[in-house]
Simulated assay, not measured.
Amino acid sequence: MEGAVKIVYSRIYAPLRKQVYSSLSELNAAIWIALETHNNQLLRGRNYSRRLQFEEIERSALAPLPVLRYEFKKQLHATVMKNGHVCLSVDKHYRRATPYSVPYRFIGKKIKLLFSNSLVEAYYHYERIALHKRVKSPYNYSTDKEHLASTHRFVTDWTPDRFLEWASSIHEDVRLYIHKILDRKQHPEQAYRSCVGILSFAKKAGEQRLISACQRALSYGIYNYKTIHRAAGRTILEKNMDQYEDSLFADELPMPHHDNIRGEDYYQ
């Protein structure tokens, strides 16, 4: 190894060191020329060069390169959710991990995920059941429509009709909001988790507050779970925004009480 470094230094670096190059591509081109000159020189005490030896002996012994470049892979285990997707938990630091679809028959099964920087593979009992490009952007789904229950004569516990019926039992405006969420997704399964999250607020905060929150969210014209739970960094239900009158929003929200806020009376 040290001998090879010495040869490269004397045959490539030395001839180029006094030249001035204006770009990396220009320098690389000069290196290739110097390298080719080095490979074509006769070996000391031999009547052949490195290039000649390669072409006559070594090239025919080379195996073809792999179709895909080698990538280091890691693995973890996860349970397939009722919407037919599974999340790569290591990507949670990207705000929200991208769910990847697997065939619907594996719903509820624990599978192995084998992932690299560019691909995500799902295995069940040593059989690969799904292959996806790895997606790190938040709030996206990687879905193969052939994996989904709605593509087949199979119905899971979660269906659009069930969510719409559940929402209708609360209020028509809640049903309308759930309908908007389902309608915006390319595949209904992609919206199931949002539907469950929104409708569960009926127990957490009360039906009336959920109704008010959906009515206000409908006026925003933005249809997703984040609008109800975390709209623009605020939470409609947790911040009691659903209880404000529309007239308050027409001007400004009431100033919250806080020791670090002086209030308007201070300046009078």
Score class of each variant (00 low, 15 high):
residue 1 M to L: 10
residue 3 G to W: 09
residue 9 Y to D: 13
residue 13 Y to Q: 08
residue 14 A to L: 15
residue 15 P to L: 08
residue 16 L to S: 07
residue 17 R to D: 02
residue 21 Y to G: 08
residue 23 S to P: 11
residue 25 S to F: 03
residue 29 A to C: 07
residue 30 A to R: 02
residue 36 E to Q: 13
residue 44 R to F: 06
residue 47 N to D: 15
residue 52 L to R: 11
residue 61 A to R: 09
residue 62 L to K: 11
residue 64 P to C: 07
residue 65 L to Q: 08
residue 68 L to G: 00
residue 71 E to C: 02
residue 72 F to C: 05
residue 74 K to L: 12
residue 75 Q to D: 10
residue 76 L to P: 00
residue 81 M to F: 09
residue 87 C to G: 01
residue 89 S to L: 08
residue 90 V to A: 07
residue 92 K to Y: 09
residue 101 S to K: 00
residue 101 S to L: 00
residue 107 I to D: 02
residue 112 K to N: 04
residue 112 K to Y: 01
residue 113 L to K: 01
residue 117 N to V: 04
residue 125 H to K: 14
residue 128 R to N: 14
residue 129 I to C: 09
residue 129 I to S: 08
residue 132 H to T: 12
residue 134 R to T: 04
residue 135 V to C: 10
residue 138 P to F: 09
residue 138 P to S: 05
residue 143 T to V: 14
residue 146 E to A: 15
residue 148 L to Q: 14
residue 149 A to D: 05
residue 151 T to K: 11
residue 153 R to L: 12
residue 153 R to I: 05
residue 153 R to K: 12
residue 154 F to H: 14
residue 155 V to S: 09
residue 155 V to L: 08
residue 157 D to N: 13
residue 164 L to T: 10
residue 166 W to C: 08
residue 170 I to Q: 03
residue 171 H to E: 08
residue 172 E to I: 07
residue 173 D to P: 00
residue 174 V to F: 06
residue 176 L to V: 04
residue 177 Y to A: 08
residue 178 I to L: 10
residue 184 R to H: 03
residue 186 Q to A: 14
residue 187 H to D: 12
residue 189 E to N: 09
residue 193 R to H: 09
residue 197 G to N: 12
residue 197 G to T: 03
residue 200 S to Y: 04
residue 204 K to R: 15
residue 206 G to A: 03
residue 207 E to V: 07
residue 210 L to Q: 04
residue 213 A to M: 05
residue 214 C to S: 06
residue 215 Q to H: 08
residue 217 A to V: 12
residue 217 A to E: 03
residue 218 L to W: 04
residue 219 S to M: 08
residue 220 Y to S: 06
residue 222 I to A: 02
residue 223 Y to I: 09
residue 224 N to R: 04
residue 225 Y to S: 05
residue 225 Y to G: 01
residue 228 I to T: 04
residue 231 A to E: 11
residue 231 A to S: 12
residue 232 A to I: 03
residue 233 G to S: 05
residue 235 T to D: 14
residue 236 I to C: 01
residue 236 I to S: 01
residue 244 Y to N: 07
residue 245 E to H: 15
residue 246 D to A: 11
residue 248 L to T: 05
residue 249 F to A: 02
residue 251 D to K: 11
residue 251 D to W: 06
residue 252 E to M: 10
residue 254 P to H: 12
residue 254 P to N: 10
residue 255 M to W: 00
residue 256 P to S: 02
residue 257 H to I: 04
residue 262 R to A: 13
residue 265 D to S: 10
